[in-house]
Amino acid sequence: MSQQQIIAVVGATGAQGGGLVRAILADRSGRFAVRALTRRPDSARAEELAALGAEVVEADLDDVAGLRKAFDGAHGAFVVTNFWEPRTPEEERARPATTKEREQAGNAARAGQEAGVRHFVWSTLPDTRGYFRPGDGTPTFEGTYKVPHADAKAEADRFFLESGVPTTFLHANVYYEAFQDMFAPRRDERGALVLPLGFGDARVPAQAAEDIGRTALGIFRRGEVLAGSRVSVAGSVLTGAQYAAALGRALGEPVTYQAVTPDEIRAAGFPGAGEVGNMLQYLSTAERDIVELIDGELLRELNPELQSFDTWLAAHRDAIPR
């Protein structure tokens, strides 16, 4: 046990970090031990991880000294930030989520470098701004961002590059789990199932949440040879119509795709509508570059259990609202 290499996992009670913690604990090779970092080690999720065998350690991305201590002795560190963490309007005004993400990523990179971490896996996203034309009428946020939750992470990449610690840049795409809520099919006025999505005709990559963690484990297994690489996780790359067809097969009744334009989404008026509309416009405009980044052969080598949308639906269809 003492010869195991420790992987410190930021956000261990979240979707990405939790998936990695569980993947390490399930790994029969026993090569790695997992140190689960969380702000709330007394939470139910943290206690569940401890019961499964994880070392649970209190750590906060806003506390460099605490992070350094939590990273001490770790071979690798998985770092993820949470743009969508619930916050009050006062907190957002005082420190926008984009600022928080950049600062927290910088803190993690600095703490890991000082603690002697040998390999970072940083959960990031591409910078979307090059896919929007000046004056195209799409909203800009904080004077610079088009899709803040992606663009700010892309800006934070530099902290890991500057740290000198070998870093692999992991990109998650659309979550299959979104089809259980935000992207769930709905009944129209005739009672038929429809899938209203802003994918247009674009092919859009998606993956199960747990496959992000499993892929991260594969990256740590592969080691520093993947330093500097970008690994984009996707179990399926489908059009909106193909996602609808897959849902129809799983649910046992037709699901019709209804394309919703980014302009319609931006005009909907719900909180974050402008950013969501921009994000969906980016998915369409940048389709070729997004899809070309996905290396299916590498993904299957890193994670032999990688699930297609059909495979995931077969196990989760009862959780799809209808």
Rank of each mutant, 00 (worst) to 15 (best):
G135S: 06
N173D: 04
V64W: 09
S43P: 05
I212D: 06
A268F: 13
A259V: 05
L170Q: 03
E292L: 13
D295C: 14
V194G: 02
E47T: 12
L49F: 07
E90T: 02
L193N: 02
L299D: 03
V225A: 15
H119F: 15
L170F: 13
L197C: 06
L67M: 06
F160N: 03
V34N: 03
D136L: 09
A97S: 10
F71I: 06
E305Q: 14
K153G: 07
T311H: 14
R118M: 10
I24P: 06
A51P: 11
G191D: 15
D295S: 14
V237N: 03
G106I: 03
P134E: 11
A77R: 02
F71S: 08
V255L: 01
L293Q: 13
P185W: 04
V260T: 06
L298G: 05
P148W: 07
A259G: 10
E91A: 14
E287P: 10
Q242V: 12
P148E: 08
G130W: 08
G19C: 07
T215L: 02
Q281D: 15
G106Q: 11
G228W: 12
I290T: 07
R87H: 15
P185L: 05
L67R: 05
V10Y: 00
T256V: 14
G30K: 01
L193S: 05
P139G: 06
Y257S: 04
V117T: 11
T138F: 08
F120C: 01
A245S: 10
G130V: 06
S163Q: 03
T256E: 15
L52K: 09
F159A: 07
R28C: 10
V56S: 02
P196N: 01
T88Y: 04
A65T: 15
E103Q: 14
G228Q: 06
D310N: 09
R187I: 06
G106T: 04
R68I: 12
P196T: 02
L25K: 00
F83A: 04
V79R: 00
A33Y: 08
G269A: 04
L52W: 11
L293S: 13
R68S: 08
A94C: 10
A65I: 12
A108C: 12
T124Y: 04
A70L: 11
R300I: 05
D27N: 11
G143S: 03
Q207M: 13
Y243D: 02
A192H: 14
V64L: 10
G30W: 07
T124S: 15
Q3N: 14
T138A: 10
L195I: 01
V10F: 01
A26D: 11
S284F: 07
G200P: 09
Q5W: 08
V237W: 01
A15M: 11
D263G: 10
V165H: 04
